[in-house]
Design a protein around this nucleic acid. Structure first.
Lengths: 340, 340
DNA sequence: CTGTTAGCGCGTTCAA
DNA sequence: TTGAACGCGCTAACAG
């Protein structure tokens, strides 16, 4: 059957092998695996039969080399452990898959690793990138220089115009703050995210401004988006406010949950009777019976859909302008806060 | 400066461009970017200078074509939303990165998508794969046929010998069950995972056998590993046992958490006074103040480390035998169960 | 140490 | 509709 191969170990049949087996030329095989091909039905069948017999799959690497399209997209995410990103990642890969695009995943241990990651991104000649990590203007510029389209996820190009999809922090926080203020709360506290988080800062700024606009002051404590920091932040705020705190605005759900647990267990408070807590994101645990966090749910489906669509568009037409798409979040009333 | 390029749009400089710029041959450039190269210091500098000026990065695609090493590894995960896998994925990509290997991520929406995924895996000529999804014997055989090493994560090759890393379900469940039995519980219930989960079935079997061995009977209800199914399962078991249930063994932490919330909120029970609940995995939320689930923590760090090591080893030496590595989990006492 | 040469597997002209 | 020839960007002998 199979001719003995003089080469060393072959990892897979090539289009030449298939061509020989089917008694046609290599280019016939190539055409056979391309969509708008012009191949005689009989020839096509012979080729496909041979291909099946030899277990032939076109080498995407070689294809990429010649077509200058790797069909690879880089997804760069800083902290996969964020509880919010796994859902995003799953959605993105599945949507990209549906478009015939493969995902090269880069997950950063530290923000400082970005440059090493980009190095690899260039080497693999990805067709585009979706980035949920902080990029300097120079790093963003590098994408432009190389003609690699980027779509930023939940952040915008700082100083550089870049395509992006975001969830509207401002209107979201405004809704939460207005609800809390109308709910007759007196002493407000905010738990910010880490300083290097774009959305974190945006959310806190929005909340603080709105509070100020409504004539309320507030204390701000920094957390780092995880459960433990919600607990720690609550303790700190209780100390600062001499236990008078009765409304807590957290930059994400996970810290809100940490704060709720801490309020109940460490301070014996009732939520929301004694303390109202609101979050942001709408992650799974936010809807758990024990929490039912009042929060803003990001429309992840629509956002990922938009991100993929924008990227694919820009891969086709690199000259497209850097549109920003902003999606409104949905207020989940929950039961962790007394809103008016 | 840069010579005008007659070609259409170039996506990046090639080694020829660099060679011309530096006044050397193309192969000199190639060597310059390889580790054990023999290049004169002066030449090397000239080349690196030219490369920097032209923003040259070796084309990994072309390299892969010729070296037959793509430096790509496929990671195939069925449900990224599992809350346990994001951590695993982050660990794996970072460890692979450290080895100079890039990750091609495949996330399955449905188990039936495996074949399409494998199709792409073959096309990209990955050097290996780490799989946390159910594979048929034929699918596993396909890897062997193509000489693509695989390491299974938390499952073993069913019918086919394959390298794998697992957390020991059996000893873990035994420890939990023994503790519960010695804790004087009377009516046992088990919440299983979905039928197509390897670890799910293994854990339930282990727990059931141990209970039987100790002369206890139990009722089993199936869940699907998520929070809501923990709640649903508890309701069902309370019905079945006429509310006599006082020890609940869940196939994972998320269902345990769902059950705990349900017990407290829907049934007004105290955990663990009225009902003991144990889980498996040791995911983040299991340690939250509100839950403190008594569970078995998987040694994710050691497991991912082993998985990557085994895979890399097998990429180097494909003839290596299909070792199975089993890691013991750590019993986290928690406070959701009265263990002896 | 360096340059020359020959492919890696495939898509893509261009004639036939 | 088909096949011959070329080249994508690079590595790996081999000769100098």
């Amino acid at each position: 059957m199979t001719k003995s191969v003089s080469q060393k170990v072959r990892k897979g049949a090539t289009s030449y092998d298939v061509a020989r087996q089917a008694g046609v030329s290599q280019s016939a095989v190539s055409r056979c695996f391309k969509k708008g091909a012009s191949v005689a039905p009989r020839t096509r069948e012979k080729i496909l039969a041979a291909a099946r017999e030899l277990n032939y799959y076109p080498n995407a690497i070689a294809q990429g080399l010649i077509t200058r399209r790797s069909n690879l997209v880089a997804i760069i995410i800083s902290n996969l452990t964020n509880l919010y990103y796994p859902e995003v990642l799953a959605e993105l890969t599945q949507r990209l898959s549906a478009q015939g695009i493969r995902v090269l995943l880069f997950s950063l241990a530290a923000e400082s690793d970005v440059d090493e990651v980009l190095d690899q991104v260039w080497r693999y000649r990805v067709d585009g990138a979706i980035v949920a990590a902080r990029l300097h203007p120079e790093q963003l510029a590098a994408f432009a220089d190389r003609g690699v389209p980027v779509v930023l996820y939940n952040r915008i190009g700082e100083g550089v115009p870049v395509a992006s999809v975001c969830c509207d922090s401002i209107s979201g926080e405004h809704a939460l703050v207005e609800g809390l203020v109308e709910g007759e709360h007196q002493v407000f506290g905010i738990v910010a995210g880490p300083a290097d988080s774009y959305v974190g800062e945006e959310r806190v700024d929005a909340a603080r401004r709105k509070l100020q606009e409504l004539g309320r002051s507030c204390a701000v404590v920094r957390g780092n988006f995880d459960y433990a920091s919600g607990d720690a932040a609550l303790k700190e705020l209780m100390r600062i406010t001499d236990r008078k705190l009765d409304a807590l605005i957290c930059a994400n759900d996970l810290m809100a949950i940490g704060a709720i647990d801490s309020a109940r267990i460490n301070f014996g408070l009732e939520v929301p009777q004694d303390l109202s807590v609101v979050g942001f994101d709408g992650v799974g645990p936010a809807t758990w019976l024990a929490y039912q966090v009042t929060t803003i749910r990001q429309p992840v489906r629509r956002m990922t859909e938009a991100a993929v669509a924008m990227l694919v568009e820009r891969i086709e037409k690199p000259e497209l302008s850097p549109e920003q798409r902003l999606f409104a979040g949905e207020l989940l009333p929950g039961s962790s806060a007394r809103l008016a």
